[in-house]
Computed example of a mutant assay.
Amino acid sequence: MPELFRRPDLLRLDYDTYRALPAVANSDLSRLRDALDGRPPRPQTSPSNGALEFGTAFHTALLEPDTYVPGQPGLNDTLIWWLVDGVKMNSQLAEMLEQGTPEPSCLFTEPETDTLCKLRADLVVDVPGQPYTIIDFKTTIARDAEHFRSQCTVYDYDRQAAFYTDALKADRFILVGVQKIEPFGVFPVEVTELMLHEGRQKYQRLLRLLKAPATAPSYRAEAVQAAVDALGLGE
């Protein structure tokens, strides 16, 4: 008899409440990666802090259109809704948008490192008799679908896919690149087992580093420790 499992609960939280949860997010792992690679720290941002960035505005229009506020400084509302319409012209994506739960959050313990983690997915589709699917939308300036596919590894989208897939025990993870420049193409990419394997190695390595920042190379030790301290989760 196959072993039964229970997926973590999907929580309906506003963004600021989610951000305040004392757990490690994929974005935190990106900051730790940046410190390890010698990149400058990323600024902490929140939709409630002022003008939205383009990607955040697009996600709001696509996933929670009733909460979209037009006329934000520096944003082209017409372009944002044009991109939303472009996504919905793909019949499969349109159906998943109708069926799915937008912007659900989740708290879970990553078993390999015993780390309390959190995630906030773009869209989760849980329909009886169909694969449990996570969809994540990325605005992009990639030239075409193959260019976007190659970026999935470069930008660590594979790490995010593995982090989310493992947490929710999902059957599928679909990345959707949405061109924000002409010709405004839409590029769905189903994440492969190889991508998940490579992404899993990435996130587990970073979680181990979070547990033991002293294991970072000596020339990055100070930056890594600062990144860990900034999370406020140090033991």
Rank of each mutant, 00 (worst) to 15 (best):
V176L: 03
Y68G: 00
M89A: 14
D34G: 15
A226E: 12
A51G: 13
V24E: 00
L194S: 15
G234F: 12
T165A: 09
V154Q: 12
L4F: 15
T215S: 07
A162P: 09
R149V: 09
R149D: 09
F173D: 01
D126C: 13
P102V: 01
A214T: 13
M96D: 09
L168I: 08
L4H: 11
G86Y: 11
C117R: 00
G232D: 03
W81S: 00
L10A: 08
C106S: 13
Y164P: 04
T56C: 05
L194Y: 13
T192K: 10
N49H: 15
A23I: 10
L79W: 09
D16W: 09
A227E: 00
T139D: 01
D144I: 01
R39E: 02
G185W: 12
Q72M: 06
E146R: 15
I135F: 02
I134S: 06
K169N: 14
S46P: 10
T192L: 05
V178K: 05
L11V: 04
V125W: 00
F58M: 00
A94P: 11
W82N: 14
L194V: 11
V124C: 13
F173K: 04
F148M: 00
L11C: 04
V84C: 01
T139F: 01
I181V: 15
L36N: 05
V87M: 01
A142S: 14
L209V: 11
E235N: 13
A162W: 02
E198A: 02
L4K: 14
A23L: 09
S46Y: 11
E64T: 15
D16Y: 10
G177A: 02
R42L: 08
T113Y: 07
M1C: 03
E64R: 11
I141A: 11
D229P: 11
R7D: 00
A227R: 02
E98W: 14
R205V: 08
P217H: 10
F108P: 04
P213I: 00
E95G: 07
V224A: 02
W82E: 11
S91W: 13
